[in-house]
């Protein structure tokens, strides 16, 4: 991974593409829950979750590849843990929304759901921002620095 420019770039590209789809789908569903385009059936919109979970799997696989390429760079950086925590919580909220709305027409969104949609947007913004800041905040690139 580290020595092949193509492999590293490919993992980075797949990670970005998959992240764009996961965050994009979550933004769309959150926008609907918050009140945009109220005539779209939430149950129908949540069909996009099937695509979302495929993209999430690609985030995990490419993320693991990037982590294995430069483990010290990520694991010594607190921003990495912030990204992983926000990503995990964001996906848990996605799972909750999917369980609540998928194939269940006539479900109305209450105040608690709307608040959770705002939290979801916030978590995805934190995930994106932390992801970008990872490249600028690391102190250690290689573990060999300690040997």
């Amino acid at each position: 991974m580290r020595e092949s420019g193509f492999a590293f770039f490919s993992a980075l590209t797949v990670h970005s593409l998959a992240m764009a789809f996961v965050v994009g789908i979550n933004f769309a569903i959150a926008l609907r829950l918050i009140g945009f385009a109220p005539r779209i059936e939430i149950a129908a919109l949540s069909r996009f979750y099937s695509l979302h979970w495929y993209a999430a799997a690609f985030i995990f696989i490419s993320g693991m590849a990037l982590l294995l390429a430069y483990p010290a760079k990520a694991l010594t950086n607190p921003v990495f843990y912030l990204k992983v925590a926000a990503l995990t919580l964001g996906l848990l909220i996605s799972r909750h929304f999917q369980a609540t709305f998928f194939d269940k027409p006539k479900v109305t969104n209450d105040r608690q759901t709307i608040n959770l949609a705002y939290v979801s947007v916030l978590l995805w913004v934190v995930t994106l921002t932390a992801g970008r800041f990872l490249a600028y905040t690391h102190n250690t690139l290689l573990a060999s620095r300690y040997f």
Partner: peptide, 15 residues
């Protein structure tokens, strides 16, 4: 970060 946020909004709506 803002640039990628905008791109995600684009993918989540136009996409």
């Amino acid at each position: 970060s803002i640039h990628f946020f905008g791109l995600c909004l684009l993918v989540g709506t136009v996409g």
